[in-house]
């Protein structure tokens, strides 16, 4: 990576469009990723993130627009672009009946590695994944988090200039997620530029130097996390946890003056890898009981009493109240009027 020039444009996406039939999955996206940064693509499921990175990584051809990576066009120099890229797909794209070691050797060879260099890079990737001691076990015997880590390891052995990670933490336990987030930071420190997509705003906020928020195939905002938060203005988030939600209370809250939006978060029990796990992201107030209502307001000091009053009159049992600074979730809410989560 001798030709790394921090700050220079590594990826330039211009007016990128992908239509499936009548439906535009990516609808005129333009963005620039600079050498050395961690760039986030934040958006809800179906926003077009995977479709966009599939075009950047030469998997599917754009309907319109252009992409260059390191100055090479995806349309005309696909093989040069592919050499510069490391891909971590959204799915665990590994061979379940092969061991981690066999998988990594195979993917290393696909990137042209062989011999001593291959072995060295495989060992290094296993070290990064923290799975060197279980390398000789079949991937199918791994937990979801371990599979995710090998999925990442398979994309970094050739030391790509740009590492593209598509929702690399979906459906895993908190420890594995933290391990992965630390890994991304570490890889970036070693000099890899990272394009990170997620629908988890905390991850993007934690990792990314710059973020593009996408919805319905369009970039609705782009900048540093601080710049994006400023879009919300001086609004704050009032978060109220209540035992259950009385009928009609959402409407009453929305009618309050100085309230911009109201959203409801119900903790979900989701099936993952056969076991129910609590999705800790569903409620910012934690995986506690009850439901959480979030109210976005310019004047939280005055509104907080009204909110609690409305809830009290409706007969809701208030468990906790919290006021905090806006986050990327609030930015998304502010810009789209809907929540990032499904």
């Amino acid at each position: 990576m001798s030709d790394v020039r921090p700050g220079a444009d590594l990826v330039v996406v211009t007016d990128l469009v992908k239509r499936f039939g009548q439906n535009a999955a990516v609808d005129g996206v333009s963005l620039t990723i600079r050498e050395g940064e961690v760039f986030g693509l934040l958006g809800p499921n179906g926003a077009g993130k995977t479709t966009a990175i599939s075009m950047i990584s030469c998997l599917i051809a754009p309907t319109g627009g252009t992409v260059t990576v390191g100055g090479f066009s995806v349309a005309n120099d696909a093989s040069k672009v592919k050499k510069a890229l490391g891909i971590v797909p959204q799915e665990i794209a590994l061979y379940p009946t092969l061991t981690a070691l066999e998988n990594l050797r195979f993917w290393g060879r696909m990137y042209g590695l062989s011999g001593a260099l291959l072995e060295e890079r495989v060992a290094e990737a296993l070290e990064t994944a923290g799975l060197a001691d279980r390398a000789k076990e079949r991937v199918e015997t791994y937990s979801g988090g371990m599979k995710r880590r090998i999925n990442i390891a398979a994309g970094i052995m050739h030391h790509p200039r740009l590492l593209i990670m598509d929702e690399p933490t979906v459906g895993i336990d908190p420890q594995s997620r933290n391990h992965i987030l630390e890994t991304v930071k570490e890889l970036n420190k070693r000099g890899m530029t990272v394009l990170y997509t997620s629908h988890y705003m905390e991850e993007v906020e934690f990792l990314c130097d710059r973020v593009a928020i996408v919805d319905h195939g369009r970039v609705i905002a782009c900048g540093t996390v601080e710049q994006l938060k400023r879009l919300v203005g001086d609004e704050n988030v009032i978060s109220v946890r209540i035992a259950s939600i009385p009928d009609g209370v959402m409407e009453s809250l929305r009618e309050l003056t100085a309230v911009d939006s109201v959203t409801l978060h119900v903790p979900l029990l989701k099936e993952r890898d056969g076991e129910p796990v609590q999705d800790s992201d569903v409620s910012p107030a934690g995986a506690g009981e009850g439901v959480t209502i979030e109210v976005l307001s310019r004047d939280s000091g005055a509104v907080i009493a009204d909110v609690v009053g409305v809830l009290g009159r409706a007969g809701a049992h208030v468990l906790a109240v919290d006021v905090r600074e806006p986050n990327l979730e609030s930015v998304f809410l502010h810009l789209t009027g809907t929540s990032l989560r499904d």
Binding site: S54, S57, C58, L59, S79, K82, K83, L85, I87, P89, Q90, E91, I92, A93, L94, Y95, P96, W107, M110, Y111, G112, A154
Partner: peptide, 14 residues
């Protein structure tokens, strides 16, 4: 289906 074919297509393999 298991995304290993797309993944191969995103490597330099022709």
């Amino acid at each position: 289906d298991q995304w290993t074919l797309p993944r191969m297509l995103m490597t330099p393999a022709a």
